[in-house]
Design a protein around this nucleic acid. Sequence first.
DNA 1: ACTGGTATCGAAACCGGTATCGGTACCATG
DNA 2: CATGGTACCGATACCGGTTTCGATACCAGT
Lengths: 343, 343
Amino acid sequence: MHKRKTLQDVALAAGVSKMTASRALRGDKDVSQRSIMRVQKAAREIGYVGNHLASSLAGKATDLIGVVLPNLENIVFSHVLNGITETLYGTGLQPVCGITEYDPEREYEVVRNMLSWRPTGLIVTGLEFPADTAKLLVEADIPVVQIMDTDGDPIGGCVGFSHHQVGFDMAQALVQSGRKRIGYIGCGLGQDNRAQKRFDGFLAGLQQADVRLVAQRQDPGFSSIATGRRLTQALWQDHPDLDCIYYSNDDLAAGGYHYFNDLQVAIPDQVGLVGCNGLDFISGVPGRIGTTRTPRHEIGEAAVRMILQAVASGAPLAPIKQELRPEIDLGLIATQPPATPDP
Amino acid sequence: MHKRKTLQDVALAAGVSKMTASRALRGDKDVSQRSIMRVQKAAREIGYVGNHLASSLAGKATDLIGVVLPNLENIVFSHVLNGITETLYGTGLQPVCGITEYDPEREYEVVRNMLSWRPTGLIVTGLEFPADTAKLLVEADIPVVQIMDTDGDPIGGCVGFSHHQVGFDMAQALVQSGRKRIGYIGCGLGQDNRAQKRFDGFLAGLQQADVRLVAQRQDPGFSSIATGRRLTQALWQDHPDLDCIYYSNDDLAAGGYHYFNDLQVAIPDQVGLVGCNGLDFISGVPGRIGTTRTPRHEIGEAAVRMILQAVASGAPLAPIKQELRPEIDLGLIATQPPATPDP
DNA sequence: ACTGGTATCGAAACCGGTATCGGTACCATG
DNA sequence: CATGGTACCGATACCGGTTTCGATACCAGT
C-alpha cells in the first residue's frame, strides 16, 4: 500500500521544482518546452493522478456544478441530467448530482452537502423550498438555477415551464376535441407539487370550459405502469361512461392503455388517454395516447447555459425566468371525436 | 459579494480557537458542553457551511464513492445507481457518478477524474477495460468493484451476473417451451458488449438444443420502444413464420409488442416475445412478454456492501466474484405452446 | 560595459480545514 | 503538600496543490 504520488514526486523525477511541474501539467505560461516534456514524461511514468481537493482548495473555484434532483428512477430527471451532462461536456466543468427522494429534510442535507464542495454553480429542482434551504441558496454566493417549474418566484435563474399552464391547456384542448366526461388519475401528489400544479391547472381549464371532472383516483406512491393499470381499472369500474382520462404521467397512461387494450375497449375512439411528458412509450403506439411533450433535455441545456454565462460575466445570477413551452400532442384524439357524442 | 465564512470566523464569533470549533462541529471528544453550544450557535448565526475540500485534504480520506456508469437514460443503470444511493444513505458516504456514454476514451477521463477526488471507493461498470484505464484501477489503491458482468476476470471486487449464461438459459427455456422458429433483435452491440455476450450465449444455447436462429435484425443506436417496433416490422415482413423473437432488451420487446398488437397478431400464442431486464413495462401487460429479471438494485447494494466491508477491514479488495442469479420469467409462453406447432 | 526586456524558474505564503501534542485548570488521592 | 489523573483547550505543523513575487540567465540595443 504505497503512498499516492504527489506533484512533488513528479517534480523530483523530472528534475524541476514543484512549481514548474504544476505549470507544465496545467499548460501554464512560463515553462520551457524541455521542462514540459520532462514533466509530462515523469508524470506518465510514475502514474501521477493529481489531487482535485488540493488544487480546488488552492485555486479559487472547483470545476463542479451541483445538480439536485428528486429522483432518478423517473426518467424525466434522467433526461434533464443528460442534457446537463451533454452541455457541460467540453467546458471543463463536471456535474455532480444529489438525490432528495422528494424529502425536504434530505433536500436540505443534499444542498448543504453540495455547497460544502464549493461548486461553481448549482442547479436545483423546483421553486419552493423550506426557509432554511432557501437561506442556503440565497447566501450561496454562486449562480443558482432552479429548473422544471416557473409557477412562482425564483431565487436566481429559472428554467422550465408552467405546470399549471400545462394542465390548463390540456383541459382546454380535450374539451375542444369533444371530450366531455373526463376522469383524472394521478400519483405522488403529496410529494411532487408539480403534479399537483398540473392537476390544479387542469381543473381550472375544465372549469373555464364549464366541464366538470367526473371522477378521479390517486395513489401516494411513485407512478408506474402497473399503478396506472390498477388505478384505471378502479376508475373504469365505477365510471364506464368516461370518454377521456387525464393522467399525471405517461407511465400511468401506459398502464391505462394496456388495461383497455386487454378489455378490447377502443383507444382513443371510446376512451381517450392523455398523459404528460412525451416519454418513449408514446412513440411505440403512435397516435394512440395523447401527451404533453416537455422539453427536459432543453431544460438541462438552458440551465447550464445560464450558469456558464453567469460565470463568464462574473456577475451574480439575477432572478430571471426562462419559459420553455411544452407542446401538446393529442394524437388521434384530435381528429377522432368520441364514439358516444354528448347530446 | 462577501467572502465565504470560514471556521476561523465561527471560532471568533464563539470566542474559542479554530481547533475547538472544528471539534465541536464534528462532535469530537475533548470539548465542553458549553463550547459546543456556543460554537453551534455561532455557526448557525453566521451561516457557516464548511468546506469539504479543506477537510478532506486535511483528513486522510473523502466520503466519496465514485460510480462510473455508461449511461443514465437506460433505466437499468438508474436502478443500479438507486441501489447504490439507498445503501450508502446513512453511512456518511456519498455517491458521485460519472457517465461514459460507452466511449472508452471518455471512460478513461471519467475514471481519472474520479480518482483525482480521492474517493474512498470506486464502482465501475463492466469487466473489460483498455490497458491505460485498467492501470488506473489497479493502482488506485482503494477498493474497486466492477459491476453488471461476471464473464471475465475482475480487477478487484465483482458483482453481477453472467450475460452469456442469461442468453444461454433463455435459449434453452424457449426451446423447451416449444418455440423453434426464433428470431433475434438487438441494439447497440458495437458499444455494449454485455448485449453482445447475451447474444453469444443465446446462440450457444440454441446450438446446444440443435435449433438454428432463423433471422436477426440489429441497430447500432440505443435501444428504444420505437426502434423495437421498427426492427420488428422489418424482421416480420421477411419472416412471418417466426414463432418467437428474442430481444436484447425489454424496450425493444415492448416495441414489438405494440407492433403485433396493432397487427392483431396473438401474443404470445402466435409469436412469443422475450426481452431482458424485467422492466416496468412488463408488469403492465402481465404474462404477455417474457423476460429475464435482472437484479439491478441488488447489484448496487452488493457493490456498496463490498466496499464498506473493505473499508472497515482496511484490507484491499481481493479479486472476488459475487454472482447474482437473474430469474427467467416466460410468462404465458411457458404454458401456451405456439399456435403452429412444428411438424 | 551598461541598461532593459524576455523567458524561465523556484521559494514562500496561502487555501481552510484536521492531527498532534503540549499546556492549563481542577480535583482526588496519599 | 506533592502527585497524578482527567477534562478541556490552543499553537503548530501539516494535507497537496496554486498564487505571488522575486531571482536568474540570456540577449539586444546603445
